[in-house]
Simulated assay, not measured.
Amino acid sequence: MPYVEASVRRRQLVAAARTALSRDGVPGTSLRAVAAEAGVSLGTMQYVFPSKELLLRAVIEDVVSEIAEVLRDSADLGKGLEHAVRQALVGFWTRLVVGRADLQVMQYELTTYALRAAGQEGLARWQYERYCGVVAEWCQQAAQGAGETCAVPFGRLARVIVASLDGLILQYACDPNDTRAREDLEAVIEMIVSLAGVRRSA
């Protein structure tokens, strides 16, 4: 087997894990199954990811990076927080929700798996800390870049955004009604903008 740089191998295994997890679910995905999906030996798999928990953390981090990229690409942060929220939440929905049921169901399964598996509760907590962390940082960058203040702490604003989107995504996964979902998303955006109470810094 030809040598593959460690960072490249890691990305290959995370991509294979996302495919296997989306297809077979979290409980049904083992390190052996991911190794087979990636076309590598179990020994190679275990060298990079000695445990399933470490692999799941890497998958969550990969999803968080994808979310952060979509947020960055969807709005000009120099135009302020309200602009960023309006543009990026629609961009997020279009790129990561519509037609991406496999991604969304996988994320819910990661959470419920961690909450049910003895000793893995911390993984679920860390998952949502990462989601909220990247959103809070993005909100803060948008506000500060435009010389604005926010009426609530950025951490709280991020938690409300994540919680609101979670609810809409779960409903959409159960009943993918595009018209209703878009109307509800617009309502959520208005609530978030109102909560943020954006003002120009003195």
Rank of each mutant, 00 (worst) to 15 (best):
D178F: 08
Q120P: 10
A114G: 05
V160H: 05
G119N: 09
T149C: 03
L165M: 08
Y128R: 14
E148S: 03
G119F: 12
I169A: 02
T179S: 12
D178Y: 04
A117D: 06
G155N: 13
L157C: 11
A163D: 15
N177F: 03
T111Q: 06
Q120W: 15
D178H: 12
C150W: 03
L168Y: 03
D184A: 11
L185I: 02
G167F: 02
S164E: 10
N177S: 13
G155S: 14
E186D: 07
S164P: 10
Y172E: 00
E109I: 14
D178G: 05
C139E: 01
L115Y: 09
W138G: 05
A124H: 09
Y113H: 12
R125E: 08
Q127C: 06
E109W: 14
Q171K: 07
R182M: 10
Y131L: 15
E109P: 14
Y131P: 04
Q144D: 14
Q127L: 08
Q141C: 11
A124E: 05
A181R: 04
A143S: 02
E148L: 00
A118P: 08
R125Q: 12
E190S: 10
L185R: 02
A117I: 09
W138K: 03
V152F: 01
F154S: 03
A136R: 08
T112G: 04
L157A: 13
A114E: 00
I169G: 00
E129F: 07
A181C: 08
V160C: 08
Q144W: 06
E183R: 07
V162P: 04
G119K: 13
T112M: 07
Q144G: 04
C132Q: 14
D166G: 00
Y113D: 05
L157F: 09
G155V: 12
A181H: 07
A163H: 06
D178P: 11
Q141D: 12
G133N: 08
E121I: 15
A118R: 15
V135H: 05
A117M: 11
Q127P: 01
D178S: 06
W138Q: 06
P153Y: 08
L157I: 12
Q144H: 08
Y172M: 04
G147M: 06
A146I: 00
R125A: 10
E190P: 07
A136Q: 06
V162E: 05
G119D: 09
C132Y: 12
R130L: 15
L170S: 00
A173M: 10
Q171R: 08
L165Q: 01
L170N: 00
R156S: 13
L123D: 02
Y172I: 04
P176W: 11
L168C: 03
L168R: 04
A187N: 08
I189E: 03
W126Y: 01
E186T: 01
T112H: 02
Q127M: 10
E137H: 14
Y172D: 00
P176F: 13
Y131N: 10
Q171V: 00
E190F: 05
I161S: 01
T112I: 09
A158R: 12
C174H: 11
N177K: 07
R159G: 01
T111N: 03
Q120C: 14
G119T: 13
V188F: 01
G145Q: 12
I161H: 01
R125N: 06
P153T: 14
